[in-house]
Design a protein around this nucleic acid. Structure first.
Lengths: 207, 207
DNA sequence: CAAAAATTTGTACGCTCTAACAATTTTTTG
DNA sequence: CAAAAAATTGTTAGAGCGTACAAATTTTTG
C-alpha cells in the first residue's frame, strides 16, 4: 500500500462541490425542501444530471453540506456581534441580531427553513442537523445570564426566548406583511426586558 | 330534467367519508403530510385503493376536509372556554387553553401540523386552509382588549402573542422533553402579564 | 504526443405516488 | 325476483424521483 494514497487534489473538486451546494441553496430558498431535486440542482449549476453523484454520495449529502455551511456562517456572524458587545445586555441583543440577519429575514428564507424543520420532525438525520443551532443558542444565553440569574430561571427564560425566535420566523414565512424585521427585533427586545425585569437588565448593562 | 335530481341520499356516503377522513387523520398524526398517501389512507380505513376517488375528488379534498374538521373542533372548544369566562383576563386565558388542548399538545400532533404549515408556505391552497385560524385568533384577542388598549398596541401585542403560540408548537415538535404543556401555558400567561402590564391586567380582571 | 487519469454526459432502471377506470359485488327498487 | 343503481375492487397508466453506470470528453502525466 502506498504511503501517499491521495496525492495533492486539484481544486476542481472543491469548486464543483461549492457550485453544487450554492445551486442547491438557491433552489432551496426558491422552492423549499420538496422542490430540491437532483435534476434541478444540476440544471441550476449548469451541469448535467449525473455529476451530482460524482462529487457527492447522494442528494442528502449536498443538502447536509448546505445546512452546515449556513450554520457556520450564522455562527460566525454571532461571534462577530458578540465580540463587539461590551456588556451582558449588548451580548443579548447581539444574539438577536445574529439570529435575524438584516437581509435574510425574508419570506423565502423563512419558508425554506420551515420546510427543513418539518422534515426533521420525521427524520432523525435531519433532526441532528438542526440541533447544534439550539445547543449554541442555549449555551450562549446561559453564559450571558449565569452571573445575574439562577440556573432554573435561565432555563425557563431560554425556552421562552427560543420559542419566540422560532415563532417569529414561522410568522415571517406565513405572510408577506404580517411580520417584518424591526417588529420582530422589537418584540424580542421587549420580551427580554419584561421577562428578565428591570433589575436584572440593569445589572446586565452594568457588566 | 327532473325536479328532484338527487333523491334522499343513503347515509353510507357520509359514513365512508368520515371513515376516510378519520383514517387520514391518524396517518397524518403518525407520519406527517409526506406520509399521507392514498394507499395508506385506504388501508388504514380498511378499504381498497380506488374507493378514495369514489367519495372524494382527489386526495387533497380528504386532507382539506380533515383540516376543516379540526379547525371546527378547535374553534368550538374555544367558544366553550370563552362562554365560561366572566372577565377579560379569563377570556384571554381561555384562548390559551383553547390553543393548547390538554391531551393534544404532544409531539406527533405538533410535528404533523408543522408539516402542513411547511407545505402551506409553497402552496396557496394550503395557505388558505390555515389562514382562518389566525383570523379568528386575532379577532378574538382584539375583541377582548379593545376596551382597555389602543388599536396599534393591540396589533403589536397580537403579533407577538401569535408568534409565541406558533413557537411553542414548533418547540414541542422538536424534542420530546424540551417543552411540555404546563411550561407552555405558563410562558404564555407570563407573556400576557408582562407585555400588557399590571394596570391593564387589573382592568381586564375587573370586567 | 500518446497513454492514463479525471471529469462530464446522457440514459435507463427501479421505485413511489396519484388518479383513472373497467370489472365485479352488493344493495335497492319496482 | 329480476333489473337497475350503488358501492367496491384491483389493475394500470403516467409522471417524477434518486441513483447507477457505460460511454464520451477533457485534462494531466510521463
Amino acid at each position: 500500500m502506498p504511503a501517499k494514497p491521495k496525492r495533492q487534489k486539484t481544486r476542481i473538486e472543491d469548486i464543483r462541490r461549492v457550485e453544487l451546494i450554492d445551486a442547491a441553496h438557491r433552489i432551496f430558498l426558491r422552492e423549499g425542501l420538496k422542490g430540491l431535486t437532483t435534476t434541478k440542482i444540476c440544471a441550476e449549476a449548469g451541469m448535467s444530471q449525473g455529476i451530482l453523484t460524482y462529487y457527492f454520495r447522494d442528494k442528502d449529502e449536498v443538502l447536509f453540506e448546505m445546512v452546515r455551511m449556513n450554520n457556520r456562517v450564522l455562527a460566525d456572524a454571532v461571534v462577530v456581534h458578540l465580540r463587539a458587545a461590551s456588556n451582558g445586555w449588548e451580548r443579548l441583543t447581539a444574539l438577536i441580531d445574529g439570529n435575524f440577519p438584516a437581509p435574510y429575514y425574508d419570506r423565502p428564507t423563512a419558508r425554506a427553513w420551515i420546510s427543513l424543520y418539518a422534515e426533521a420532525a420525521h427524520n432523525e438525520r435531519y433532526a441532528r442537523l438542526i440541533r447544534p443551532y439550539y445547543r449554541r443558542l442555549r449555551s450562549n444565553i446561559t453564559a450571558i445570564l449565569k452571573p445575574v440569574m439562577a440556573p432554573e430561571a435561565i432555563d425557563h427564560f431560554v425556552r421562552g426566548f427560543a420559542a419566540m425566535i422560532d415563532g417569529l420566523w414561522l410568522r415571517r414565512g406565513h405572510s408577506e406583511t404580517d411580520m417584518w424585521l424591526d417588529e420582530a427585533k422589537l418584540l424580542l427586545v421587549e420580551y427580554i426586558e419584561r421577562m428578565l425585569g428591570s433589575e436584572v437588565v440593569a445589572r446586565l448593562k452594568a457588566g
